[in-house]
């Protein structure tokens, strides 16, 4: 049992290393074009709703906190509390995704979805399309990870509901926690990189 738990923990960290490299390719593309097109990056960033992005950041950090409580309760074998914290985490995650959905919808209305329907006026239109392409791919993949996380949270909450966890047996919750924190951390990088580019020169 101990060996099994150690294996699962190591496996999770290896998986997360893989995830870092997966997102890394997008960050590399972001870095290159940010250096090439600083003006377009600043202008494109203005198109994003920093208010909604900011609220989402708070929501997601809050969900990491509730997730940490869930892990702690599972370690103590408090199944009911574990279940409740997990469900609260899930609700906060849903809030994030719904807000994200509104942001996407707004982009759709503005014809700011890159591709055939993309409309943007000004000299930097092509470069801003690259910015928004990366924005959608990065936040889209992040949101996809959140959706997968919902499935995991629901499953683990179901296990907690059945009273399956004990101080000797809680690695499911711990692994779900690692995954969830990882998804949060990705957002912690995405938010400033996408929403706060050079904002100081444009305030007011």
């Amino acid at each position: 049992m101990v060996q099994q738990k150690e294996s699962v923990t190591l496996g999770m960290w290896v998986f997360l290393a893989q995830e870092v490299m997966f997102f890394g390719g997008l960050f590399m593309a972001y870095l290159l074009y940010r250096v090439w097109y600083p003006a377009a990056w600043a202008e494109g960033s203005q198109e994003l709703d920093v208010m909604l992005g900011g609220i989402n950041t708070v929501v997601l950090i809050g969900s990491s906190l509730t997730m940490a409580f869930a892990v702690r309760c599972a370690q103590l074998g408090q199944n009911k509390a574990t279940r409740n914290w997990l469900l609260l985490t899930l609700v906060l995650g849903l809030v994030f995704v719904v807000i994200k959905g509104f942001e996407y919808y707004h982009k759709f209305e503005m014809h700011h979805i890159p591709g055939a329907d993309f409309v943007f006026h000004g000299p930097n239109a092509d470069q801003i399309q690259i910015f928004l392409s990366l924005y959608f791919m990065m936040t889209g993949l992040h949101a996809l990870h959140m959706l997968i996380g919902f499935g995991i949270l629901a499953w683990i909450a179901g296990m907690a509901h059945k009273g399956r966890f004990s101080p000797e047996y809680y690695s499911h919750v711990e692994m779900a926690g690692l995954y969830w924190h990882f998804v949060d951390i990705v957002w912690i990088f995405l938010f400033p990189l996408l929403y706060l580019v050079d904002r100081v020169h444009h305030v007011g």
């Binding site: 490299m21 890394g24 390719g25 055939a116 399309q129 392409s133």
Partner: peptide, 20 residues
């Protein structure tokens, strides 16, 4: 994972006509 994300960008570019 790096080639995976690269192929994904390539697929998005081909499918939607974006210009990465």
């Amino acid at each position: 994972p790096v080639v995976a994300i690269t192929v994904l960008m390539l697929a998005a570019e081909r499918a939607f006509g974006i210009g990465i």
